[in-house]
Design a protein around this nucleic acid. Structure first.
Length: 426
RNA sequence: GGAGAAGUCGCGUAGUUGGUCUAGCGCGCACGAUUGGAAAUCGUGUAACCGUCAAAAGCGGUUCGAGGGUUCAAAUCCCUCCUUCUCCGCCA
């Protein structure tokens, strides 16, 4: 969400930004906002003036009543009554106009960072850097579900019976591996100075409204029947939600948080749950990073955040690359975003395992998250988020890359203490 | 789930026969005075958002959990909702 003052001052820049994102149909919204906003402010000014008059007269009436001057008081009352109708109309007009302005402001995309490459869709995302050798072994790497089944580590048939498609039972060493990865990720981030959180796994509708659009909500969030509660789709929802409508002290910044949670997603829409396996599912678990920082520090944090994920995967011998989201593929709220992708020796390509985003001040503005600054006045901080790791999807990369010719799976050194000292499973 | 109590400007509180409430007081905080320095003391200040303005100051508006209503006028009266606390019940 943009600052409307910025839009008023730089309408052409906002339009140019919309074009860069190939959303030309939204260009007209800019002029509409300017027009509606102007009307809205005019109505508000007029309404405020009337209300001021009313307040002044009301106060006089109070004085008159006290002195017992009944007739004068009655006359004054009448003059206020005459204003009431115009005021009511103006009030309604202001409400209506500001709703129309907000409606448009919510869909006008955030200003993208100058470094974001211009492109229409995900096919034009740009590889930034590779880490590790994308090796293909000389034996065949099976589909990840087959690897898991051979390890007696997954039961999809039972999950379909109890819960339907898109759910899983993990068991034995694979389940243990799943927990080990999360425990290791937790400690990995704590060691890097992040504060560990276990947040609520359900949030209220007003928080949901704040952190996502209506269509996102419809396509992602599971609602608890008969309660004003939704299952979170990511811990970012509860972690950012905790700051809604708050003013942080300057010395509380930066907030560098790492949170664990299960994540629940309906996955309605474009992709859906069309594939077998645990790549896209209704339930997974995730270690996340969330940062709230000073605006001038967000670029530096952005790089640090996705490097954390790269380092994490590299420490588990998984080759990764970073992929910069082009303008057209960038979600409207984001200033810049980089995906971390892991190498799949079976598919011989990289696939997404995490996404790092800098939201600038847009999310903070939308959620009224502010920082107290007595000298310059309160300001909106920047917010960022990134995936550390999200199994079981991550296990696909893990198993494929650590699979050995004899069918066993190597456990890299950092994970061994979380696996009871095992150096391999199988 | 049952019963009761309560939500006021960072914190704690005052304020309910509607009108100098333009929300008082205490604490905290900031600045200043005093001091060799400090404590103590004294003084001053102490919210957010919107509008007006080139900008600041100033001025105006809104906000006493949220929303609606009554009224010329609502922290105060009425309605609906939310939340918190206490006790009981149930339960990882």
């Amino acid at each position: 969400m943009l600052d409307i003052k910025f839009l008023r001052a730089e309408p052409e820049a906002v339009k140019e930004n919309i074009r860069k994102k190939f959303q030309d149909e939204k260009v007209a919204l800019v002029d509409e906002v300017i027009e509606l906003d102007e009307q809205c402010r005019a109505a508000k000014t007029r309404c405020d003036t009337l209300r001021n008059q009313r307040n002044v007269i009301s106060k006089q009436i109070g004085g008159l009543m006290k002195q017992g001057k009944k007739e004068e008081a009655e006359a004054a009352k009448k003059s206020v009554t005459d204003m009431a109708e115009e005021m009511a109309q103006l009030d309604a007009r202001v409400d209506e106009l500001s709703a129309q302005v907000r409606e448009r402001m919510l869909v006008i995309p955030n200003m993208i960072d100058p470094s974001v490459p211009i492109g229409r869709d995900d096919s034009e995302n740009i590889e930034l850097e590779r880490f590790g050798e994308p090796a293909v072994p000389d034996f065949e790497v099976p589909y990840h579900v087959d690897i898991m089944e051979r390890l007696q580590g997954i039961d999809l048939d039972s999950a379909r019976k109890t819960s339907g498609n898109g759910f899983y039972y993990l068991c034995g060493d694979v389940a243990r591996l799943h927990s080990a990865v999360l425990s290791y990720a937790r400690d990995f981030m704590i060691d890097r100075g992040f504060t560990y959180y276990i947040p609520p796994f359900m949030i209220r509708s007003n928080v949901v409204d704040g952190v996502m659009s209506f269509s996102e909500m419809e396509n992602m969030m599971y609602k608890i029947e008969g309660e004003d509660l939704y299952l979170i789709g990511t811990s970012e929802h509860s972690m950012i939600g905790k700051f809604i409508d708050t003013i942080l002290d300057e010395d509380a910044l930066p907030q560098a948080l790492t949170s664990y949670s299960p994540c629940f997603r309906k996955e309605v829409g474009a992709h859906g749950i069309e594939e077998r396996g645990v790549y896209r599912i209704h339930q997974f678990e995730k270690q996340e990073m969330v940062v709230v920082c000073r605006p001038e520090e967000s670029k530096e944090w952005f790089t640090r955040l996705y490097r954390n994920t790269v380092d994490f995967f590299r420490s588990l011998d998984i080759p990764v690359r970073t992929l910069e989201c082009c303008s057209g593929d960038l979600a409207d709220l984001k200033v810049k975003s980089v995906d971390v992708e892991a190498w799949s020796p079976r598919q011989k390509k990289y696939f997404e395992v995490g996404s790092c985003s800098n939201l600038g001040d847009a999310q903070a503005r939308r959620l009224r998250i502010r920082v107290r600054d007595k000298v310059k006045g309160n300001y909106f901080p920047h917010t960022l988020n990134n995936t550390v790791v999200a199994p079981p999807r991550m296990l696909i990369a893990f198993l494929e890359n650590n699979l050995r010719a004899d069918g066993t799976v190597a456990i890299p050194a950092p994970l061994q203490m979380y696996m009871g000292g095992k150096t391999f499973i199988g």
